[in-house]
């Protein structure tokens, strides 16, 4: 039978382009400031700006109509944004636009902050890593961004600059929701600062993807463990989860429960359960709620194992 009621559904008049269709890339201007001061001046000129670091997200977003701008500000000609290195106090200072490949190819970075390399070396394929930056990966504010959870357990802080000065904030305070960060339109991320890691500590990051490369995390976890002097107790821990909430999440209760415990499967399993408790994921083409909650637990345990091994190697 023909269901007449359905066939004669009400017409929906659409004025202008349909919002569900991808919009074409509209024309924009390109500026390439040579200094931070010049960049801040562009940010303050009243036009809608987007920042271009590696471009592997923003160029695609512009092309697919997911973002638009009057001007695209290329940050790659600002020397301090492209540099990275260890400060005298041991802080790893990474210019926000420095390419990931340069970072993870650095032997000193690999030796001193391997958890950062865990994340930096799996964002996209090799061609993406030649361009993509920590700053872009963070500011894009994807809940699944690989660098976020790794930097959160490393205690990274962000140096934010604008025409009126600079400020610092913990990396976890950058994220406001899927694709939304807490920066003001006048601000830009200048530097990611990873403090020297505690003695007898190790950190590890991993994600779960259905393929072996080129996927967005279905879920991810980072962990850092600090051991006591004898190595038989956990002194402190940090755990962060990706892709299981609107932003990357710190799993505080799970981390706190590890303090004072014997490092090993029993404690890790409990931490895994607690970590899953903070997960508030969605179901989409990449995974389901139940799957992601379970993965949060599994990956937490695996991240803790990796962190423990590194902590022991550090002793």
């Amino acid at each position: 039978m023909i269901d007449r009621a359905r066939v004669t559904a009400q017409p929906v008049a659409l004025l202008g382009p349909n919002p569900t269709l991808r919009m074409p890339v509209e024309a924009f201007d390109y500026v390439a400031p040579r200094s931070l001061a010049e960049a801040y001046a562009h940010l303050g000129n009243g036009r809608t700006s987007l920042l271009l670091a590696g471009g592997t997200d923003v160029i695609v977003q512009l092309r697919e109509g997911r973002k638009r701008c009057d001007q695209l500000i290329d940050l790659k000609h600002i020397p301090e944004l492209m540099r990275f290195g260890f400060a005298p106090d041991g802080t790893l200072e990474v210019g926000a636009a420095a390419p990931l490949a340069a970072l993870y190819e650095d032997a000193e970075v690999l030796r001193r902050v391997p958890a950062l390399v865990d994340a930096a070396s799996i964002i996209g394929g090799t061609a993406i890593q030649s361009r993509a930056s920590l700053g872009g990966n963070l500011c894009n504010a994807s809940p699944a961004a690989d660098s976020s959870a790794a930097l959160m357990v490393l205690g990274a802080r962000l140096l934010i600059g604008s025409a009126s000065g600079t400020r610092e904030l913990p990396v976890e305070e950058l994220f406001a929701g899927p694709g939304v960060n807490t920066l003001q339109p006048s601000e830009l991320l200048v530097q990611v600062r990873i403090p020297p890691q505690p003695p007898r500590s190790g950190a590890f990051y991993l994600r779960f993807i259905p393929r072996n490369e080129m996927d967005i995390a279905v879920a991810s976890a980072g962990a850092r463990l600090e051991l006591n002097a004898t190595g038989d107790r956990i002194e402190g821990a940090r755990i962060a989860l990706g892709a299981v909430g609107p932003t990357p999440l710190m799993a505080k209760a799970a981390a706190e429960a590890l303090a004072g415990e014997v490092p090993g499967e029993e404690a890790f399993a409990r931490a895994g359960e607690l970590a899953a408790g903070v997960a508030s994921p969605i179901t989409d083409m990449r995974g389901s709620v139940a799957q992601r909650k379970r993965l949060a637990s599994v990956l937490t345990v695996r991240a803790l194992r990796g962190a423990l091994q590194r902590a022991r190697e550090a002793r």
Binding site: Y30, L52, G54, G55, T56, I59, V60, L72, D74, K76, P99, A101, G124, G125, T126, A127, I128, S130, R131, M214
Partner: peptide, 24 residues
């Protein structure tokens, strides 16, 4: 940036030409 058919070398590094702007 997901298939690599446009792989080129930019200053010696492998990139996807679709994820680079001409002006850059």
């Amino acid at each position: 940036g997901n298939c690599g058919a446009c792989s080129v070398l930019l200053n010696g590094r492998l990139v996807n030409a679709c994820c680079v702007l001409g002006v850059e």
